[in-house]
Write a protein that binds this DNA or RNA. Sequence first.
DNA 1: TGTTGCAGGTTACGCGATTAACCTATTGTT
DNA 2: AACAATAGGTTAATCGCGTAACCTGCAACA
Lengths: 335, 335
Amino acid sequence: MWSEGKVRIRDIADELGVSTATVSNVLHGKTEKISERTVKAVEKKLEERGYIPNMAAALLARNNSRIIGVVVNDHPKYEGHVFEDPFISAAVNHLSDRIEEAGYYMMLKKARRVSDAVVFASIWNLDGMVLIGFCEDDYQDLRDRIRVPFVIYDGFADAQERFGNVVIDDFDGGRQAGAYLRDMGHERVLFISDNDICMDHLRYLGLCDGLGHKAELMIVSMKASERESCYRERLEALKGYTAVFAASDQYALELIRFLGQNGLSVPGDISVIGFDGSREAKSAAPRLTTVSQDNFLRAEAAVSLLLKMISGTDTEKTVTIPVKLTLGESVRRIG
Amino acid sequence: MWSEGKVRIRDIADELGVSTATVSNVLHGKTEKISERTVKAVEKKLEERGYIPNMAAALLARNNSRIIGVVVNDHPKYEGHVFEDPFISAAVNHLSDRIEEAGYYMMLKKARRVSDAVVFASIWNLDGMVLIGFCEDDYQDLRDRIRVPFVIYDGFADAQERFGNVVIDDFDGGRQAGAYLRDMGHERVLFISDNDICMDHLRYLGLCDGLGHKAELMIVSMKASERESCYRERLEALKGYTAVFAASDQYALELIRFLGQNGLSVPGDISVIGFDGSREAKSAAPRLTTVSQDNFLRAEAAVSLLLKMISGTDTEKTVTIPVKLTLGESVRRIG
DNA sequence: TGTTGCAGGTTACGCGATTAACCTATTGTT
DNA sequence: AACAATAGGTTAATCGCGTAACCTGCAACA
């Protein structure tokens, strides 16, 4: 096998005439009981021979892994392209950085059910898991079977002993958008979401709260490929509103494009607010006004919460990340 | 630790009064020397007790890992957001599917140098690696130190014994774009690229070949945040061309947006062709004419090549994926 | 002189799965 | 009757590392 010739602890120990325990202790900084001379000698030899630990052996011995699993719901709405979704890929990007920073490794996996994630965790003796995009129902009967600490990055609201939870303030985001629209003179406001309402309900409630009255609701297909026809069917209805609050930037940008193709300008004819603060929102024309969440903060919160849970530190299990309205050019004052 | 109570092979064996070897053999389908009764009994018990293998132990014993590492060059041009890049995230998405399909697990990692990838491979006893975005120079003195089979998904052209290589036909892509532009009556054509020319040079040569004469070259910054000012500085120069071939869809779409903001329409005033065939190209307005590559095919080719190399099958080490010009609405006939 | 203490290690087992080598009882063969 | 062959297993070593328990020799102290 290709790994022939790899340097083991035993090799180092033999060449130096010390025991493997000594080498292992040096490697882990347990040098109180080792003379400075020996420490130096071991360190030198390790360097010289280019020692690289064999994680399989280490984790078998320690019964943990230094691996954090990031498991993403392979929801049909993505049509097989989850990792290409801007929100998901931003999450993966930042999680990857935080995980590496903490000295862990990342295994990335799509899964359709939470139970797959559980098996995954068990197979690899994962130290922790970050779950993205699963809904409350998905966790139902797994509560007791999940033995590894994990945090829900998105999509669940009830933190428990082994459940960490990082949420953004969806309600407040909706409220800010609503209040802003009201201040800009908008009354007839439409909320666009898909029927996976478990994610977006709070945004809707916040919107109504900010507006001071109920907004209308329009449900579109989750599947990107079907969405345009949803808009097309309801083009006339859309014309009845002065502003739209979309449940995600993606929906907002799609809508703007669609409206443009049908002779309606944004914000000239209709104002649009998105949700996420994605990179696309910043570079779109017109720049999208959107409720932005800080993915960096969110990933950081998720990983540091997870690490606390792994180390057994008692801690608040739910972390709420604030959002703020980022003004672009997609909302116009009217009235 | 949380893994207490996990079922081991030994538990199964003890409860059945057989040896661990027997259970292990059943698990691996080596049932020639085991009676049907015993096989059934073991299988039943495994099912019953919910046995899940401990990979750490298995891989220590077997000296491999069932892990494929996907290592992406954390190039400064991405400013820390590699995994959010459309091309990269599409690659990760498809690789993830192919890897899972083949019964392997994926570890995802950013790295700045190929040598980091080498250490990574060694630590985890990776069965194979897929490297994305590294340039020829990056591999220089590592050729001999890399012991794990790996394939280069993007960015290198010289396959060798342990190097697999999946490339797209950059030259032909450029040629197709050039020929099409010529047929549409364009003469003054600009090629836009960044200074990481190792990737784009063939596209440029192909373009010239297709056009039948040399195209002009414009180098912009690799960093997204600096690119707009690059365009701005050279706005007047841009006006001198009837068509632009951009080295990526991202550049093309940015340029279209920029031109729009400056009163130039695409394809009215300038025609634009991109490269990649990204999802954004399809949904942009106007739809982008682009040289598209099939990410599915590419990932499939990469993983199946890697698997062949892992299993020691002798095989052609370079796979070239064809590209084809996808017509959108961003090129106009002139003259 | 006998005892304690400590510095500086070493020994040896366990983690869970794999696998080559070995065993035993039964049936078949000459 | 003597022997071989086969079915159906079992035994025990091994992978590389971590770590609790155990040594050993010298200095200090009463």
